[in-house]
Design a protein around this nucleic acid. Structure first.
Length: 281
DNA sequence: CCTGAAACCTGTCTGC
DNA sequence: TGCAGACAGGTTTCAG
């Protein structure tokens, strides 16, 4: 489920507690179990399991689509949810201190000294975890966060003109901007009234400003609605009820009423309104 | 540097 | 009902 708003929602729940679950901050790790070995990107599973016990969870943040968990021994635990990952906090044992069953597709479980646990669930097995001393090892190469104050309309315009790429694949490129995925890119391009295949270096300054504003607006709304919940990958958000174009092929454009069209751009399903998002600016 | 295709995976839905 | 095929919120790698 993971684009910036969904990852932000999860990181906040882990840090402060969510509607149905307590926070992980302040808990002390007692052990861990890896159920799908490839989930651990680095270090080896053996070292991963050996290094965690005894460490306290100090803080949980988001960077791009990464969940970044600071631990007490100057270690950092990072997760990337990819297509189907999710993180839950729940009791790990019942009243008689017997282990509670895990969920289908749980790939990694971190146990806490107080009996709670953090479970990484990931049906498609694309998600990854890293345990590193220096988070830069994993996060280096990410572009600016869309909400970074340094990202002014002037800077964004320069970034677009420094490349010559189709808008949609460029916005999906995490080294360009960190956090956008397929949903919010389609939504932002529609709100900005820009055709997904426009060349980035052909945008006017006005169009670039409009795009930056639209990106921030759709992400803000996504966060305010706790992200989007789609299909069987459910997380409790309801931004899916506000989609302008995403997964609305054939339905009327909320602005002009023309049927939304779907095409393939860089192998990704792309939804747009041919009237509001004309090929030429 | 840019684009497109394939790979990594499982689950769901559609159409024949 | 069964089954093949398309498709899914992501990223990396490789070929042209």
């Amino acid at each position: 489920m993971p684009e910036l708003p969904e990852v932000e929602t999860i990181a906040r729940a882990l840090r402060n507690g969510g509607r149905n679950e307590p926070p992980v901050t302040g808990r002390v790790i007692s052990g861990a179990a890896v159920l799908w070995e490839r989930t651990v990107a680095t270090p080896t599973v053996e070292e991963f399991l050996a290094r965690l016990p005894g460490q306290e969870i100090l803080d949980v943040r988001r960077r791009g689509k990464f969940v970044v968990i600071s631990l007490s021994r100057l270690d950092t635990l990072l997760f990337h949810l990819r297509m189907s990952g999710d993180l839950r906090v729940e009791p790990g044992v019942d009243e008689n201190v017997q282990p509670l069953p895990l969920a289908p597709h749980d790939r990694l479980v971190i146990h806490f000294a107080d009996g709670y646990r953090l479970a990484f669930n990931d049906a498609r097995k694309f998600g990854r975890a890293w345990l590193v001393h220096e988070p830069r090892e994993v996060l280096a190469g990410l572009g600016l966060d869309p909400f970074d104050p340094a990202l002014t309309p002037e800077v964004f315009d320069q970034m677009l003109h420094a490349r010559s790429r189709q808008l949609k694949p460029l916005l999906l490129d995490q080294t360009f901007l960190a956090g956008l995925g397929n949903i919010y890119t389609d939504e932002a391009l529609h709100l900005a009234r820009l055709y997904p295949l426009r060349q980035s270096d052909e945008l006017t300054f006005e169009e670039a400003s409009r795009l930056l504003e639209a990106i921030r607006a759709v992400l803000q709304e996504g966060i305010a609605r706790n992200g989007a919940s789609i299909d069987w990958v459910y997380r409790g958000g309801d931004f899916q009820n506000s989609f302008r174009v995403y997964q609305r092929t054939g339905q009327p454009c909320p602005v002009c009423g023309h049927p939304i069209e779907r095409t393939l751009v860089g192998q990704r399903g792309t939804h747009y309104c041919p009237v509001c998002q004309p090929r030429k600016g």
